[in-house]
Design a protein around this nucleic acid. Structure first.
Lengths: 155, 155
DNA sequence: GCGCCTAACGCGACCTCGTTGCAAGAGCGA
DNA sequence: TCGCTCTTGCAACGAGGTCGCGTTAGGCGC
């Protein structure tokens, strides 16, 4: 892809505010773009591009391009959990870091502050600024660790 | 893939010990298999399947199947750094966890004990057993964090 | 040393996830 | 309403990895 615009992230709380703010940035609010936004606003969990395109009856390329554009404007973010497709969600509202169980595939969503001590430990030990928003912390959830279960999962 | 054999990991220190131990497990030491092992023993850094197949003149499917077999027997492990291909290395000798810089793509290899306090923090806070052997800790290395540089990298 | 059994190989097709080129279509400011 | 141009849908492509299948070659028993 060509250089994506790196612009300040939009302020928005609801669909119409987001739409208005995007319009002010010069983006056209096409039907596919609005549908993608509506689906993300309506979903409790992050969605894959394939889920969006099949549910909304849109071309996958359009969905990918819209997600890229919306992410460049700070409206959307995405995370890679294990080996599956990238998952996309609206920015904001606290929950944006994840613990990913490599055994059962389960995901635990956390507010950033809940991992601050972990970030601090990595910084203090190694001078590294850890971010768990884009790639999560992988390992074994409490259940799988307790039962000694490790299905291996996708490697 | 079908269920991979989950067997105790082999003890070995050199190529010939590894070969002998694999033979005792009933594995045949074909020329491609030996070449893959030799290349991994000779390399300071983890290698991709594509690097192995092109350097050794082997079919990629054979390389993947050998890596899978060797990993099932505890001789090889692999790690996913960012969005690139999986990278494969011999098991052992301490270095097996990674910090991956999302900005410059740099990788810092660590002995497991160097991340024990981080693992402890995650366990204490969330009852989760973090493992950074297969998926690393992502974020910004000291250089990129200090200079405020964040190229974004592959997302 | 020779044969045989079968693990392992190479090849080609296929799969998933995602990107790119391009002509046609649709926002939206004038 | 016009028309500029952003966006769309389609189709082809690309990386990374897997699978089916007929052939080759380890290595044990003799």
């Amino acid at each position: 892809m060509t250089e994506a615009p790196r612009v300040p992230r939009l302020e928005f709380t609801g669909l119409e505010e987001a739409v208005a703010a995007l319009r002010e940035r010069g983006l056209r609010i096409s039907t596919p773009r609005r549908l993608v936004l509506e689906a993300l606003f309506a979903s409790e969990v992050p969605l894959s591009a394939e889920q969006l395109s099949s549910r909304l009856g849109l071309d996958t390329a359009s969905v990918y391009r819209n997600l890229e554009t919306l992410e460049a404007h700070g409206v959307v973010r995405h995370v890679h959990l294990g080996h599956g497709p990238g998952l996309h969600a609206l920015v904001g509202h606290g929950v944006c870091e994840y613990l990913y169980c490599e055994s059962c595939g389960g995901v635990r969503a956390l507010a950033p502050a809940e991992l601050d001590p972990v970030r601090d430990a990595v910084r203090d030990l190694h001078g590294f600024e850890a971010r768990f928003t884009h790639f999560p912390i992988a390992g074994l959830c409490a259940d799988c660790a307790r039962t000694g279960r490790d299905r291996g999962g996708p490697t």
